[in-house]
Amino acid sequence: MKYFTEKDSVETVLARTSVAADERLQEVTAALVRHLHAFAKEVSLTEAEWGAAVSFLTKTGQICSDERQEFILLSDVLGLSMLVDAINHRRPAGATESTVFGPFHVAGAPVRSMGDDICLDGKGESCRFTGRVLNLDGTPIEGACVDVWSDNADGFYDVQQPNVQPKWNNRGRFITGPDGRYEFLGIKPTSYPIPDDGPVGQLLTQLGRHPYRPAHVHFLITASGHERLVTHTFAEEDQYLASDAVFGVKESLVASYERLEAGATQWHCEFDFVLTPSNAVPPLSTSSTHIRG
């Protein structure tokens, strides 16, 4: 029997776990205990700091609702959401990289015809989005579903303003033909702040960080025989590309926007998406070793 001491804190806690407990639960909990105890010892955590942390987590839980998940927001601003995404979606060279899903996807968006306009409120600078959905070898993928959504010109998604924006504003699904191409009209996206009126926003302020996300368009692409792709494309030259509040930007996802001089459409953005076959072997990575310490 081990009694608790500062030196043997980890071993004492882990010794209480039943051998009958789920093996994966034991592995994850043991790593969590080791890292938590090592953290507390490294910074010589004070009782006042521990109490402040408990209060912060309590307030984080209290602000959560069916419409708002402050804990996911906390995970986002600490970079944990992106790390989990990276670990679980390692892709072979040439495949389009993934990024965080975000809280504003709505299932069942209307299936629209190629070239349709998804901007229903008439705001913003119009943009034609085009590109192809391809296999790793460059073969066009027929029947791929390109599910797209973005904020409006004011930086809000339709679900954030149900009595202001039309339903399905800046949303739609497009099914590719034999050429793998997609095309739709929307708007050039704008940067916007994540909700910063709660504990997470207060933490960002105390850390001297801003709450903004760079302008981006969300894509969820699915096709038979291929892994689901959740990603964004980011507007080049956005001032927040290198300081995204949730660390979602990847260099390969920064898209070019061409200014059009004639016609009603003001911008054009071309971007190809390369999907990973369902049976593809993910590349070896040392990412997982970083979380074991």
Results as ranks from 00 to 15, higher is better:
291 I>G: 06
139 T>Q: 14
120 L>A: 03
165 Q>K: 05
57 L>S: 07
197 D>R: 03
271 F>D: 06
47 E>F: 07
135 N>H: 11
89 H>W: 02
258 E>T: 15
119 C>R: 11
103 P>A: 04
233 T>L: 04
104 F>A: 02
154 D>A: 10
239 Q>Y: 02
35 H>V: 03
157 Y>M: 05
291 I>Q: 11
85 D>Q: 10
163 N>L: 11
69 Q>N: 15
180 G>N: 10
151 D>L: 00
73 L>I: 05
139 T>H: 04
270 E>I: 01
23 E>R: 13
90 R>I: 04
51 G>E: 14
48 A>M: 05
136 L>T: 12
195 P>W: 06
258 E>L: 13
170 N>H: 14
213 R>M: 15
244 D>C: 12
184 F>G: 09
30 A>L: 01
167 K>R: 12
261 E>T: 14
147 D>A: 04
75 S>E: 14
260 L>H: 06
16 R>L: 09
82 M>H: 09
102 G>R: 10
20 A>S: 12
36 L>F: 14
155 G>I: 00
219 F>W: 07
120 L>V: 08
122 G>K: 10
43 V>P: 11
165 Q>H: 01
152 N>M: 01
80 L>F: 13
25 L>N: 00
289 T>G: 01
161 Q>S: 10
204 L>N: 07
245 A>Y: 05
206 Q>M: 09
151 D>N: 15
130 T>A: 08
16 R>S: 08
163 N>W: 01
218 H>N: 11
254 V>I: 15
178 P>T: 07
77 V>Q: 03
244 D>F: 04
248 G>S: 14
13 V>A: 04
287 S>H: 12
183 E>S: 15
157 Y>S: 02
237 E>F: 11
208 G>S: 14
255 A>Y: 00
171 R>H: 12
88 N>Q: 15
244 D>T: 05
10 V>W: 02
271 F>L: 03
264 A>D: 15
175 I>Y: 02
31 A>Q: 08
77 V>Y: 05
61 G>W: 08
36 L>R: 06
131 G>V: 00
211 P>C: 09
208 G>Y: 12
92 P>R: 10
45 L>M: 13
9 S>G: 00
217 V>E: 08
256 S>L: 09
95 A>E: 01
60 T>G: 13
132 R>C: 07
55 S>G: 07
236 E>A: 13
67 E>I: 10
213 R>F: 09
119 C>A: 11
87 I>G: 06
218 H>F: 00
32 L>R: 03
220 L>R: 14
80 L>V: 10
182 Y>M: 00
110 P>H: 11
74 L>V: 13
2 K>W: 01
28 V>N: 01
213 R>H: 15
56 F>D: 04
255 A>W: 02
117 D>A: 06
127 C>Y: 02
279 N>R: 09
47 E>V: 10
4 F>A: 06
60 T>H: 01
267 W>Q: 02
140 P>S: 13
155 G>A: 04
12 T>Y: 04
244 D>Q: 06
176 T>G: 02
258 E>Y: 07
64 C>W: 08
264 A>K: 14
